[in-house]
Structure formats: C-alpha cells, structure tokens
Simulated assay, not measured.
Amino acid sequence: MLKSYAAIYKQGHLDWLDDAPEQDNVKVIVTLVETIPQNLPMRAQEILQQAWACMEKPHTIQQIDNDIAQMRSEWE
C-alpha cells in the first residue's frame, strides 16, 4: 500500500512536516510540489507561537467568542 508523507527537501535531506515514515531503508518516489520561500516558518507550531506572540496577552476561545459577539452587536 502506498502512503504519502509531506517533507521539505533541503540540502540533500528530507525534513518531515508531520509524522515521518516508520520504515527505514525503503524506496521512495519524490514529487516536487512547489518552492517554499526560505523566510517562512515551516511547522504549524512555529506559526502558532508567532501568532500568539503578536497578541498582548493570550486569549481563551471564550474571550475570542465574546469579542466577536460584541463586534456583531455593534454592527446591528
């Protein structure tokens, strides 16, 4: 059975974006999808950390929902 794994090919090595294959020493087929700019974070966790760092303080889902509800009420 074929399985797909996402990775970034960089300097002759694959950097896995998600879980890496469990097998070692297997034949692979590589399909190049697109070129990724070097200045962008590659992992979701890095992106989330940067997004949270932009905020003054961490917000809970409830606080975000309350803010959205307040904005909607102001529009009405």
Rank of each mutant, 00 (worst) to 15 (best):
M1P: 06
M1G: 10
M1K: 08
L2T: 09
L2F: 11
K3S: 05
K3V: 04
S4Q: 06
Y5I: 00
Y5V: 02
Y5G: 01
A6Y: 12
A6N: 09
A6I: 04
A7R: 01
I8A: 01
Y9D: 04
Y9R: 05
K10Q: 12
K10C: 09
G12I: 13
H13F: 02
L14C: 07
L14F: 15
L14N: 08
D15C: 15
D15I: 14
D15K: 10
W16I: 04
L17S: 13
L17A: 10
D18Q: 07
D19Y: 12
D19W: 08
D19V: 09
A20E: 14
P21W: 07
P21Y: 00
P21I: 04
D24A: 09
D24M: 11
D24V: 11
N25F: 08
V26S: 06
V26R: 15
K27W: 08
K27E: 10
V28F: 06
V28R: 10
V28S: 07
I29E: 08
I29G: 04
V30W: 01
T31M: 04
T31W: 04
L32G: 02
L32W: 07
V33K: 03
E34W: 02
E34M: 08
E34D: 12
I36K: 08
P37T: 03
P37E: 06
P37I: 00
P37G: 03
Q38A: 12
N39A: 03
N39K: 14
L40I: 08
L40Y: 05
P41D: 01
M42N: 01
M42Q: 06
M42V: 02
M42E: 01
R43G: 00
R43C: 01
R43K: 12
R43V: 03
A44K: 05
A44M: 08
A44R: 00
A44N: 11
E46Q: 10
E46A: 10
E46V: 02
I47L: 10
I47V: 13
L48D: 12
L48G: 07
Q49S: 03
Q49D: 15
A51P: 04
A51M: 14
A51S: 14
A53W: 05
A53C: 04
A53H: 14
A53D: 02
C54D: 13
C54T: 14
M55L: 13
M55Y: 14
M55T: 07
E56N: 12
E56H: 10
E56L: 11
P58V: 05
H59M: 15
H59I: 13
H59W: 09
I61Q: 13
Q62Y: 08
Q63C: 03
I64G: 00
I64T: 08
D65R: 15
D65H: 06
N66K: 09
N66E: 15
D67G: 02
Q70M: 01
Q70C: 07
Q70H: 05
M71K: 05
M71R: 10
M71V: 01
M71T: 05
R72L: 09
R72S: 05
R72D: 11
S73M: 03
S73Y: 00
E74N: 06
E74A: 06
W75C: 02
W75A: 09
E76Y: 04
E76R: 09
